[in-house]
Design a binder for these strands. Structure first.
Length: 302
DNA sequence: ATGCCTACCTGGGAGC
DNA sequence: TGCTCCCAGGTAGGCA
């Protein structure tokens, strides 16, 4: 599933191959992935055709290409959210299509070479939208106008150790009565964390998913933030987590962090710390994996 | 306002 | 063999 490390892997792959290229054409093969584009396919085409890709940015799981020209490097943006199963694939000269191809962009670089950028998405929880940009409330520069409510992520400067935003984020987490995992997954507080890395970070800090966030100390929350950052960085170094062919980088290659997972997906297997058997439970209608000994259920629930 | 619940979507696998 | 059901989960929106 694409969470921050997977999206960042894709961002890095895109950055080195598409920045400086111009979008020549767009072909949409399934309208659902344009559901957030008010003017539909015509609007998408109008905001992309002929524009140069000037950068590739990311916040949390949100990925966008900045589009512009010589006078205005960031005029607007092409936002891509991968949802559950989205992929961005680069093809020099595709010999065959893809079963789940949803949008195909044809690009041309300064040398006149053409390349194809495909948005592929089996389950179609993902989407593509061309839209205006607004000043970034968490840093310099601009972000797509639909996402000011998205919180900063743990790998960006806004949340650096000791920064005012980090202090405020720590407080924001401890203001919530929700279980700590619900807060970790709330993209408005911190972005980029999904079900897999939330379980990993909770295992590392020996926290139960239902521990009320407002009963944690500032120090404990800081410890959790550091453990989460470490997990994200380690996964990024491994190129992300691929359970199946649903997550691959822009070249179609899988990441190998799955073999490093210590909690997620390890139901009925021994905890690497204490040997107890990892259990799978449902929390927020999602699977949660935890060690019943290291991550004790809070004494009073709710 | 806060937090909980459901719909959206497809393919793979289990069970009968 | 073939059918049905369940499960995976990021996000938006509805409701108490």
């Amino acid at each position: 599933m694409p969470e921050l490390p997977e999206v960042e892997t894709i961002r890095q792959g895109l950055r080195s191959h598409v920045v400086g290229s111009r979008i020549l054409s767009v072909e949409v093969s399934h309208p659902r992935v344009l559901r957030n584009q008010p003017g539909g396919e015509d609007e998408l085409r109008g905001l992309t055709n002929g524009w140069e890709i000037t950068g590739v940015q990311r916040r949390g799981k949100y990925l966008w290409l900045t589009l512009g020209d010589q006078n205005t490097p960031v005029s607007h943006a092409l936002l891509i959210h991968l949802g559950m199963s989205g992929q961005v694939l680069l093809k020099d000269s595709p010999t065959e299509g893809h079963r789940h191809l949803r949008v195909a962009f044809t690009l041309e670089n300064h040398q006149g070479d053409q390349r194809h950028m495909w948005f592929v998405d089996q389950r179609m929880f993902g989407y593509v939208t061309a839209l205006e940009v607004v000043p970034d409330p968490h840093g310099q520069g601009f972000i797509p106008e639909s996402m000011p409510h998205i919180g900063p992520d743990l790998l960006e400067p806004a949340l650096a150790l000791g920064s005012p935003t980090r202090v405020e984020t720590n407080r924001a987490i401890r203001r919530s009565k929700r279980g700590i995992k619900a807060v970790l997954l709330d993209q408005c507080v911190i972005s980029g964390i999904g079900n897999i890395y939330a379980d990993e970070a909770l295992w590392r800090t020996r926290l139960h998913y239902a521990r009320p966030a407002n009963r944690l100390s500032a120090g404990h929350v800081e410890e959790l933030l550091q453990a989460t950052t470490a997990v994200l960085n380690e996964a990024l170094r491994a190129g992300g987590t691929s359970f199946d062919a649903l997550y691959v980088n822009v070249a179609g290659e899988q990441g190998y962090f799955e073999r490093s997972l210590q909690a997620y997906g390890r139901c009925d297997q021994p905890c690497y710390r204490c040997g107890s058997v990892i259990v799978r439970e449902v929390f927020m209608n999602r699977s949660s994996f935890r060690c019943p000994r290291c991550q004790r259920r809070p004494r009073v629930t709710r």
